[in-house]
Computed example of a mutant assay.
Amino acid sequence: MSAVYDAIVIGGGQAGLASGYHLKRKGLRFVVLEANDQAAGSWPRYYDSLKLFSPARFSSLPGMSLPGSPNGYPLKQEVIRYLRDYTSRFQLPVKTNQRVTEVRKNGDLFTIATSTGEVYRTKSVISATGAFHNPYTPDIKGREDFKGRILHSSEYRNPEPFIGQRVVVVGRGNSAIQIGVELAEVSRTSLAVLRPVQFVKQKVWGQDLHFWIKLVGFDTFPFWRFGKKVPVSGSVIDLGQYEEKLAAGKPDQFPMFTSFYADGVVWQNGTKEPVDAVIFATGYRPSLTYLGSTGALDAEGRPLQVAGVSSTVPGLYYVGLEGQRSFASATLRGVGPDARFVVKRLLRHITQ
């Protein structure tokens, strides 16, 4: 019979590592199960030029600061190295290549099965896989007829494959703007948006925007305590003259197209335009199918939870959900406080 853990963390990205840090501080027996061959979450799959939208001093996991200038904006590879070093420094028990396929609740214990055939037993579970494993692409009329290339921003790496092409990027968030601006240097690129892009300044009165967000308490304001949904910002942080470049038409922006046709897209005014590629920067949806048999999810597959504590399955917790407890949840700067809160609740559960 396999040993029984106090807790098992599913997912070895930033949310899972922050959870592991707090579990270790409490002296609990736990393991982190990571589906891939390294504990870096979704970061290796992001586009090459990605950099954080918040400076390093506001973007660290608990117990260890991001290296480099506190006021710098770390790049993708710097974050990946940081996550590797974090795992090593705190000697977190991460098991890689352990993709969880099913979680079952048997009495007071959970049984967790992985794709390799391993089976684990535990008193509690922290689901830390977040929402970045299930890219969302809207179903648009004529898509099956389009002969060009359609991809999600999660599949985009760099502009090289699109040199000289006609490209449409769907979306108006930070990733859509970063990708669109980068592509506009080598291709004819437009943004397709439901509403015009709105910007906020990176620096206000000489300080990064996140300094003021943190100072006034908005970043960690506990909306959940008042039964309120955490608001989602509809503005883009202007890290690199993005507003100026959009104003110059590099890229330009148009109201969202209505449909595809064989060679391109049909804009709202009825104009057909040939297009080589369409990139959807349209976000993600939860992918927690491994919890399907536990009763933890609603009809649309979303977790039934309050502040990271399951509403229907005692002993089940979450870290890394967008808007879980605050505006910062699901970010590098937000998963630490969320993990601390969840581990306190978890400790009460396993010791009662």
Score class of each variant (00 low, 15 high):
residue 323 G to R: 05
residue 230 V to H: 06
residue 204 V to E: 13
residue 91 Q to D: 09
residue 58 F to E: 08
residue 51 K to Q: 14
residue 67 P to T: 09
residue 222 P to R: 04
residue 50 L to H: 01
residue 339 A to N: 05
residue 133 H to A: 13
residue 111 T to Y: 07
residue 61 L to D: 02
residue 181 V to T: 09
residue 264 G to A: 05
residue 293 S to Y: 06
residue 268 Q to T: 09
residue 11 G to H: 02
residue 141 K to S: 15
residue 129 T to P: 04
residue 228 K to A: 15
residue 201 K to E: 13
residue 222 P to T: 11
residue 264 G to K: 04
residue 162 F to R: 05
residue 126 I to Q: 00
residue 145 D to H: 10
residue 27 G to E: 06
residue 276 D to W: 00
residue 6 D to R: 00
residue 349 H to S: 06
residue 255 P to N: 03
residue 185 E to G: 14
residue 17 L to I: 01
residue 282 T to F: 02
residue 97 N to Q: 15
residue 137 T to A: 11
residue 261 Y to T: 01
residue 17 L to E: 02
residue 114 T to K: 10
residue 77 Q to R: 15
residue 82 Y to L: 09
residue 336 G to F: 01
residue 272 K to H: 15
residue 47 Y to P: 04
residue 123 K to N: 00
residue 102 E to C: 13
residue 28 L to C: 06
residue 219 D to W: 13
residue 315 G to K: 04
residue 36 N to I: 12
residue 96 T to Y: 11
residue 313 V to W: 03
residue 205 W to H: 15
residue 91 Q to H: 14
residue 318 Y to P: 03
residue 43 W to V: 09
residue 343 V to Q: 03
residue 169 V to Q: 02
residue 158 N to G: 13
residue 154 S to T: 11
residue 9 V to K: 04
residue 202 Q to I: 14
residue 294 T to V: 14
residue 219 D to E: 14
residue 134 N to Y: 12
residue 144 E to P: 05
residue 319 V to D: 03
residue 117 G to H: 06
residue 122 T to K: 07
residue 316 L to K: 03
residue 31 V to H: 05
residue 47 Y to W: 07
residue 324 Q to N: 12
residue 38 Q to N: 12
residue 39 A to W: 01
residue 310 S to E: 02
residue 222 P to W: 11
residue 101 T to M: 13
residue 137 T to S: 14
residue 309 V to P: 07
residue 64 M to L: 13
